[in-house]
């Protein structure tokens, strides 16, 4: 399952870091962060609960970039 979320982040490198962090989160199969459109496309692993996974994704992203935000 794929979902798109709006994000807020200030710099392009930070967006790359968020993408890395999100990819490493359990339950995320793949993730693409688009800095120009401020969107995060997340592909969830089968059988995972998007809401719970996204909670963890946000936590991991905040770790690498404290100023970021994901809206879901």
């Amino acid at each position: 399952m794929k979902k798109t979320y709006k994000i807020d982040v200030d710099c392009a490198n930070c967006a790359n870091k968020m993408e890395e962090a999100a990819k490493k989160t359990a339950g995320v199969k793949d993730c693409v962060v688009n800095f120009m459109t401020l969107k995060m496309n997340v592909e969830f692993a089968e059988g995972s609960d998007p809401a719970a996974v996204m909670e963890q994704v946000r936590k991991n992203c905040k770790k690498v970039e404290s100023d970021c935000e994901i809206f879901f």
């Binding site: 392009a12 490198n13 688009n34 120009m36």
Partner: peptide
């Protein structure tokens, strides 16, 4: 050490 110039200008060019 900051790679900002590169990291911002490439996606911006494509966009």
């Amino acid at each position: 050490s900051c790679p900002c110039a590169l990291v911002i200008s490439i996606p911006l060019s494509f966009f």
